[in-house]
Amino acid sequence: MENTLVDKTFRDGNGKIVLAQMPNLPLIVWIVASLLSLIFTSGKTNTVLDLLANGSLFTWAWLELFQGVNYFRRALGLAVLIGIIASKIM
């Protein structure tokens, strides 16, 4: 099989097209912490949940950027990482 840019972008090492995967631990923690921060909207609990959510999403993005199975997943990690940083700057 020829290794084209489309193959490198969307296929994993086994030749399967991968756009989405089952959530890993950092993504699950981000989802749970984000949902809980909607319930606890003020105080120290909200601050801790916000920190936990941002830290776990940053970890997920970092892992995708450097260990993603294809270029699409790595680009997704980079986009989320840039989004996190931009949202904190503004």
Score class of each variant (00 low, 15 high):
Ile39His: 05
Arg74Cys: 05
Glu64Phe: 12
Trp62Phe: 14
Asp50Ala: 12
Val6Thr: 15
Leu5Lys: 06
Gly68Met: 08
Gly68Asn: 04
Leu25Tyr: 07
Arg74Phe: 07
Val48Phe: 08
Gly15Met: 10
Arg11Val: 12
Glu64Ile: 07
Gln67His: 14
Ile17Asp: 03
Gly13Leu: 12
Phe58Ser: 06
Ile82Trp: 11
Gly83Glu: 05
Leu57Cys: 01
Gly15Val: 11
Val18Trp: 02
Asn54Gly: 11
Ile89Leu: 15
Leu5Gly: 03
Gly55Asn: 00
Thr47Cys: 00
Lys44Asp: 06
Ser42Asn: 03
Gln21Ala: 13
Lys8Arg: 15
Met22Trp: 13
Ile82Met: 13
Val29Cys: 03
Leu63Glu: 04
Ser37Tyr: 02
Gln67Glu: 12
Leu35Ala: 13
Ser87Leu: 10
Ile85Met: 12
Val18Leu: 05
Met1Val: 15
Ala53Ile: 02
Lys8Thr: 11
Val69Asp: 09
Asn54Trp: 04
Leu19His: 01
Ile89Arg: 05
Thr59Ala: 13
Thr41Trp: 07
Asn70His: 06
Gln67Arg: 12
Leu36Gly: 01
Asp12Pro: 04
Glu2Trp: 13
Arg74Ala: 03
Gly15Gln: 09
Leu76Met: 13
Trp62Leu: 14
Pro26Trp: 07
Leu81Arg: 03
Val29Met: 05
Asn3Cys: 06
Gly83Met: 09
Ile17Gln: 02
Thr4Leu: 07
Val18Asn: 01
Leu57Arg: 00
Leu63Arg: 04
Leu65Asn: 01
Leu36Cys: 10
Ile89Cys: 06
Ile17Lys: 05
Phe58Arg: 00
Ser34Asn: 09
Ser42Lys: 10
Ile82Thr: 13
Gly43Ile: 06
